[in-house]
Design a protein around this nucleic acid. Structure first.
Lengths: 353, 353
DNA sequence: ATGAAAGCGCTAACAT
DNA sequence: ATGTTAGCGCTTTCAT
């Protein structure tokens, strides 16, 4: 822009310049260049304007347009951590449906920090995005989300907040955990444990609940870890699993890790304890992250329909953008158990014990 | 915004509203709310303005501000695929240095599609971002990048383009490949092969070159795959490796895969051919992606200083933003060989062959 | 079919 | 220390 360059830069070419060169009024130039209104202008004039624009290297100033029109055509996507394997497919799903409708998606990270989360959201509102997709919420963020909703359309993706009342699309984490736990119980396991992720994230809370429901229904025993993961990482998984393996109430025959990283950590802990998977202890993960099929043993885990989730989120956003005043609903998409080799029937002697 | 809501929304509160409520002129309100100019206003008046702003839930309209000031405080980051493991740390590096300087980073994906690439860049320029970080370039994009540079500061990250002449920060891929290949040669391997990624991406081109340099220097033989990967995926790696293992010129004793996914694919191909790694064939990957330490055997690979790269990129961007007219330079950051278990000395009989 | 004029919300130069 | 005025680049009535 002018303030920074000595000479005029291409982006400094303005609609007025184009109009002058084409010998028309800016209003006409504006019409000629807008797909929506080009039919209002003589096709010959339009030609002239288009040529002029091309020759000058004109690029519309979306800032000015947005200011005038009151909308930016931007959707902000706020995610906790781009390292999460389900995010790329989800973001792609968003683009796939928002893009053709003329919206551009901009992704920002919070790194799971509440303050950054708020700052990023405020920032996006200040920039007048037309809507925000929040995939970084913690369960206690309900009031804050309500605040945001006073300013613009919001859709919660992946993570819900307590209380409901917001437009949200999540994975069905309770179901996912039930799938895992029922599979384990069906295999004959009775002494089960879970490696829990941070409970202020609805995904982990849901998995914990699904697990416990099934444990209760099948009269299994939950071997409880005294601790829970600070962050759901490989190291934390290893630490928690190690504690579990030496529990004074006896060790579990199967472990449900709330995500694949912790499952891999548990695998490591097993190895260091001289135990084998799945012969001595079965392990199941969650997310079906890349490469989980290639660890040893290949990890049984849960696959999430993340691309579909992104598309649903986008559809819900469009609903709000288009003024369909649908009441807030939360839809939960069904995950799928991927059976590989890290879980098997418990050894005879242990099952009997 | 007004056009979409029936009632007035919080974001529709304007500076004028604040000024009226505080009983001052908008200009005064503007000053009072700007950290840079608050000292120009009586502290008592400032109080009144701040209170009024707080009560009304005023949020500055960055669109209007940017239009007036001629800069947006936004930096666009254009990446090929968020699934790439080196991107999150790099993006974080960007934020870490750009954030404190008042810039916000917005990430967009191209999915490796040239048309999307151009569209996204144009879009960002239309939105008047202050600069673009391009991490999705193909080697032939030099002219296009030059075009962009006419409009705004550009820094190339990770991938360079042919011809040079742009501000760029990359990983030293030639060095990385040399590290791998020298390690392999040092182990005693003489019959080497590489699994090449798409050659229109500088990273892969560099790795191919480093590999071939060392092969020539150590009088090794490159067993050439007739094919190359369309996309550097596990499946492609498996396909290429399978072909290599049945090559009529005899199979290699070591394979350098241009990334970890292809290396894992090669591991699979080995397994299906009844061969063991590293006893029969050594395999080395690239990127040190998550979980590569946990596959069997743990993958020897190359670790990239991606966070540092992001920070350097940001610094280079700030240099341009701050008008230091440094000439375009390209800096290449050194990667590091991570020795695990997928590469070992070749078996005696094969080494002799 | 085109032009004139107003204004989106803000900041900067210039008064006072 | 505060108010006045102009204008960033565009779109949108309203005239013609």
């Amino acid at each position: 822009m002018a303030h920074r360059a000595e000479g005029r830069r291409m982006s400094d070419v303005t609609l007025k310049d184009v109009a002058v060169r084409a010998g028309v009024h800016v209003a006409t130039a504006s019409r000629a260049l807008d797909p929506q209104r080009r039919h209002l202008v003589n096709s010959e004039t339009r030609q002239r304007v288009e040529t002029a624009a091309g020759e000058l290297g004109y690029r519309i100033n979306v800032l000015a347009r947005s200011l005038r029109k009151g909308s930016t055509g931007m959707i902000g996507a706020v995610v906790a951590d781009l390292g999460n394997p389900f995010l790329p497919p989800m973001l792609r799903g968003l683009e796939e449906v928002l893009g053709p409708r003329g919206y551009m998606t901009a992704v920002s990270e919070t790194h799971e920090d509440p303050e950054t989360f708020r700052r990023v959201c405020e920032q996006l509102i200040a920039r007048r995005v037309d809507g925000i997709v929040v995939s970084a919420a913690h369960v206690g963020d309900s009031d804050f989300i309500s605040t945001l909703e006073k300013s613009l359309p919001v859709v919660l993706a992946v993570r819900r907040v307590s209380g409901g009342g917001h437009h949200t699309v999540t994975h069905d984490d309770v179901l996912g955990a039930r799938l895992v736990t029922e599979y384990l119980a069906g295999l004959g396991h009775r002494r089960l444990a879970q490696l829990r992720g941070p409970e202020d994230v609805s995904s982990f809370a849901g998995r914990a609940r699904g697990f416990q429901e099934v444990v209760a229904e099948h009269d299994c025993t939950e071997i409880v870890a005294h601790d829970r993961a600070g962050a759901p990482t490989t190291d934390e998984g290893k630490r928690l699993a190690a504690a579990l393996l030496t529990a004074d109430v006896g060790r579990p025959t199967a472990i449900f890790a709330h995500n694949d990283l912790m499952a891999i950590g548990a695998l490591e802990a097993l190895g260091e304890a001289g135990l084998r998977c799945p012969e001595d202890v079965s392990i199941v993960g969650y997310n079906d992250a890349p490469l989980t099929a290639h660890v040893t043993p290949p990890l049984t885990t849960v696959r999430l329909p993340s691309n579909a989730l992104g598309r649903r989120v986008a559809a819900m956003m469009l609903g709000q953008l288009d003024q369909h005043k649908e009441p807030p609903t939360t839809v939960a998409l069904e995950p799928e158990l991927v059976i590989r080799a890290s879980a098997a029937a418990p050894a005879r002697d242990r099952a009997a014990g």
